[in-house]
Amino acid sequence: MAKADRNTAARRAVTGENHAQALSWIRAHGLLHGLAPDAVSAEQQALEAALLFALARPVGSLHPLPLTEGPFGIAKASPGPGDDLRLWPTTGSEAEVLLRLLPSRSSDSVPTVTGVAGLRWARDGRYLALGRVRTSERVLLAARPGDVREAGRLCAEAGRACCRCGIRLTAPSSRTPRVATSTPSSAIRRPPGAARCAARSSPARSPPSGPRVSPSSPSWPVTRPR
Rank of each mutant, 00 (worst) to 15 (best):
L169K: 03
P111N: 02
S107Q: 14
R189K: 11
L119F: 14
E150W: 13
E150D: 10
R132K: 14
P177T: 00
R126A: 03
V148R: 01
P172I: 09
S173C: 11
L101Q: 05
S185F: 05
C165S: 09
R189F: 15
I188R: 03
R138I: 12
R164A: 03
G166I: 02
A180D: 15
R144W: 15
R105Y: 08
T183P: 01
R132Y: 14
C155I: 12
L141W: 09
G115Q: 01
R178C: 08
C162W: 04
A194G: 05
S104K: 02
T114E: 04
T183A: 10
R144C: 09
R149S: 03
V113L: 10
E157M: 06
I188T: 01
D108S: 07
D108P: 06
V133P: 06
T112Y: 15
R164Y: 13
R132S: 10
T181C: 10
S185P: 06
R153M: 02
P191T: 01
V179F: 12
G146H: 08
I188Y: 07
A129M: 09
R126N: 04
T183H: 12
S173N: 11
S173M: 09
S174H: 13
A156H: 13
G146R: 14
W121D: 06
R189N: 09
P191H: 10
V116A: 05
S186A: 15
W121E: 05
T114M: 07
P177D: 07
L102P: 00
S104D: 08
A151N: 05
L140R: 12
V110S: 12
G131N: 00
R160Q: 08
L169V: 02
G118E: 06
L102D: 02
R153A: 03
S106Q: 10
R132L: 13
A122T: 04
S136C: 06
A194Q: 14
R168L: 11
S186P: 08
A117G: 12
L119G: 08
P177G: 02
D147H: 14
L141E: 01
G131H: 03
P103W: 15
S185T: 07
L141D: 01
P103G: 02
T170R: 12
A129Y: 13
G146M: 11
I167F: 11
G166V: 03
E150A: 07
R178D: 00
C165M: 12
L101W: 09
A156L: 11
A161L: 08
A171V: 01
R132W: 14
L169N: 04
A187Q: 14
R132V: 03
R168G: 14
L102C: 04
S104G: 06
